[in-house]
Amino acid sequence: MTRVLLIGNSHLAAFRKGFNSVDLTGLDVEFFLLAGENYYRMRLDPVSTEFGAIEGVRQPPNLVEQITAMNGRASIRTGAFDHIVIVGNEHGAIEFVRLLAENDIDGVRSAGARRTMSRAAYDAFLDDIVDAYLPVDPWSGLDGVQVTFHAKPRMPANIAGAAPDRIFERECGIPLSERSDGVAAALDDLAGRYAARLATAGLSFTEQPAETILPSGFTDARFADVMIGQGERAQLDVRHMNADYGIACLTALLPRLRGEA
């Protein structure tokens, strides 16, 4: 039996929703999660391999309570697992998408943006963004544990339905979806560079499976029909994906988790 730990924030919800629809024979899967900004306050103790609220690490006063309420304990011993998948990992796509939306970039994208950017500047900025989003915790120091970072989902093709208060989506996502030339290749480029950097530390990175991504580079809207709120106040959630997305991701991860990839 391979012991698998899925760590994540709100993006782990899609995995949980699809969990029971995937044949996970041979895998013993646990979840460890926390939503919101405090997710990023959880730390990994390289000695004990405990992940969560770690003694001796400065943390917000309610962190222990929040983690315990969600998981029944304040931390989890990651060294007890064979494979850890960190779901919803930020790899700089937010900054990168803004860069794409606001600039025509030589050799990358020409969509009539007001500003232009050279390929040299783009390359330097892309590498720097990747650098800024490398994991802060010493995941590569876990003996005998495979660690995979699973990217936060790409913006959905139905992003035009974003609520008015979704400023980033309205400022960047919608313009990109309307003129998407070069976006798919650029997002692949970002992911490729991030994966290469993690690989040098013995860590893996993967994005959502290809079948969930349209040629435009956006997530197929059929994986993004999640609504938030009730009744007349219900709004399309353009940041989180549905159970089908979770199924697709878990299915794509299976060979890796079973050591077949």
Binding site: G92, E95, F96, R98, L99, E102, R115, F125, D128, I129, D131, A132, Y133
Partner: peptide, 8 residues
């Protein structure tokens, strides 16, 4: 001519 805040 801004660039993302995260950039060094």
């Amino acid at each position: 001519e801004p660039v993302p805040d995260i950039l060094d």
